[in-house]
Write a protein that binds this DNA or RNA. Sequence first.
DNA 1: AAGCACAGCAACCGCGAATGG
DNA 2: GCCATTCGCGGTTGCTGTGCT
Length: 258
Amino acid sequence: MVRAPCCEKMGLKKGPWTPEEDQVLIAYIQRYGHGNWRALPKQAGLLRCGKSCRLRWTNYLRPDIKRGNFTREEEETIIKLHELLGNRWSAIAARLPGRTDNEIKNVWHTHLKKRLHQNPTTASRPAVGPDCAAYLQQTHRHPHLELPAKQQQQQQQLEKFLLENPLSPPQRQSSSDLSSPSSPSSSPSNHTIFSIKDDESLKEFNGYYWSDAPSMEDPSTCQEDFNYSQRQPIQLVDNESMDFWLNLLVETDTLPDI
DNA sequence: AAGCACAGCAACCGCGAATGG
DNA sequence: GCCATTCGCGGTTGCTGTGCT
């Protein structure tokens, strides 16, 4: 693949944006949209690369961006979604209207990570997705880690579900598309994954994983001989399918209100 | 007041995925 | 199916402001 020359080699500007540049970019996108980021700066008369324009727009200039400090609720949401998704900032941002992946990433690194470090009681436990599947298999391999019968049943049902349902390829999605006049129907929720809307058993999983799963950090819910450090990344679900699982939970209304 | 350390955040970079010819 | 192009994501950098000594 031939890499596009960097901004400097093209004689393009780098560094902080001026208010004038912002105005030019806003005016252009409001009028013409951003169908082609690479061509946009040239057409708009900006000495920037398309990448820089896209970043400036998506992270700062979009009209639907919420400025200001994060609320406690938003921070809690980020923490919980991070438990669920890991460093998938764009997926997290998709659940936080008005917040960008970059902003969330910054908040995580500057505030939340430290807070979790100080108060790890809510630190990560596998919820769904690859870690969850791995976690479930681990619990089966450790008979001392007994779960209540109903939870075991739910656990087995989810494992079965994960194994039996082949994954459809995740749809490409972008938060920036939301404001694109050239892509009016690009909502990631537009595709139907498969029909499990009324699958009560799946809904039951949810309650268990969000409220009752043993915490890695909480010794009261974790047997001594359970060596979490030896958890193996059992790849029942590949990383690219995480969006799929998030979408699934959203569409089936099984993602808890957080 | 000056110097230093640290935190916060905007922006950049490189990579992989998606797309279209 | 292959290749070039474009896009989007996540990690990282570096500038700026603030607090401390």
